[in-house]
Design a protein around this nucleic acid. Structure first.
Lengths: 246, 246
DNA sequence: CCTTTGAATTGATCTGGATCAAAACAAGGA
DNA sequence: TCCTTGTTTTGATCCAGATCAATTCAAAGG
């Protein structure tokens, strides 16, 4: 059924695009159109590459904000705690994405960020970033676009939570993941989920049982194949049709 | 029941804090800690004060992005259209709030913005804002905080949509409005809603009938008084208790 | 004044997803 | 190997909110 393809899955041992050695921002953290000199200057921006083990926290709610974190490798979730202790997942973050933008506003983190697999991040001291963006207009512009994109993304989630049915939500979620894996050079149709059904449910505003049932339904219809956390998308068009045509 | 109070309602003819003449950013658009000279420079930033009538649009989805808009007076809603034509309200915006941050990312507006009452906005050319913030660090910092606050706000809405019941959602919504009116010098317990039940429902992920029933329920419990769009909060503590104690 | 029109309320019913419960499964660890 | 523990699936039931339908109400215009 699966033709052997040169495109790596995100669970292959060899990782796509993970062979760059120095932690420059050249290709992942803030891929701006810079000249060589600017890239070099930018090198100063990044403090150090930091390994984070599965289950370790990048920051907690209320902790002091100093730096943004660019995911270099791995997978994170961020969540806010409600008064009654339940957690609401606000996002999943993979290679090349920035964590901590919410903390700029109050200079305190407003969510917890935890690694869902062994990961690596670049720490980007925010004061330094602001300082440098003063002299590099394209960096400033790029940073503003990143923040703006975050807002747009959140509006998309609001739409999902506000008006989609369970199956539509899951389809949207899978298509989004698929797209993000694709952009990173991984297979868009064969990947491993790093989060549990409960975490997916929290993100999508559903209970874990409902998420599981939605997976099963999509599998029955032969649109996807589910083996625990291993997902294969067999018919992406029909998956797309699940959205907005309920 | 209502003691006559010096605090104006948002439906009084005399408006609180609306008597400033020039459209400087001094006190509303971007209230940064600036010295006199900087404030003067900043005056250049604002193109012109612009009147927008109820029902008029500030921008449409897909239109070219040039400027942010600071609400000077009045009330707006922003919404995104789904493929099937329904609209999902992404926010309500009142005096002092910024509209258009979502458009920075693609340089196209990603939502429609429409005035829900006769309003006035300041147009802030974004290129100019970036240019100036390069020379005024506190302006840059302030702008970043505004964007970040937007992200935090959206996370709050995600939490609301993802895990609250209808009554909790409406209580949260009313408390949020109350707080925003209060900060602007209006009564926090007596105000006029500018949006319909349907628009509230869209924002809160509920049908208009459910919104209406939730209003009625809160009124029965004598926590609020509802006369169409006129809302009075009689017992703000019990309203607060509605949240997270379901 | 009455008429029109859009908005809001209220009632009756239906249903998607929550909840409760149990079984199946997977990954470690002893 | 067999436990243990956490995760996932599946089934049975229940309920909050959606849906459908009918009034009521408010504002604007003739």
């Amino acid at each position: 059924m699966l033709s052997d393809t040169p495109i790596p899955n995100n669970h292959d041992i060899t990782r796509a695009k993970s062979n760059c050695s120095a932690c420059s921002l050249r290709e992942l953290c803030l891929p701006v159109g810079l000249n060589e000199q600017e890239v070099e200057i930018l090198g100063d921006l990044v403090n150090h590459k930091c390994r984070i083990q599965r289950g370790e926290y990048l920051h907690h709610t209320g902790s002091n904000f100093q730096s943004l974190y660019a995911v270099r490798r791995g997978f994170f979730k961020t969540y806010v705690l409600e008064q009654d202790g339940r957690q609401q997942v606000t996002g999943f973050h993979m290679t090349g994405e920035l964590i901590g933008l919410d903390a700029i506003s109050t200079e305190m983190h407003t969510c917890d960020a935890v690694a869902l697999e062994d990961s690596e991040v670049c720490e980007i001291p925010f004061a330094k970033l602001e300082e440098m963006s003063r002299n590099i207009p394209s960096l400033m512009r790029h940073f503003h676009k990143i923040m703006s994109r975050e807002i747009v993304k959140d509006h998309g989630v609001m739409m999902l939570l506000g008006s989609m049915k369970a199956e539509e939500r899951l389809a949207t979620f899978l298509l989004n993941l698929s797209h993000r894996f694709f952009k990173r050079g991984y297979s868009s149709s064969d990947f491993i989920l790093r989060m549990t059904r409960e975490e997916i449910g929290s993100y999508l505003g559903l209970k874990l049982e409902t998420v599981s049932r939605a997976f099963s339904k999509l599998q029955e219809e032969e649109i996807i194949a589910v083996h625990n956390k291993h997902i294969q998308i067999n018919d992406i068009d029909r998956l797309r049709n699940k959205i907005g045509t309920a």
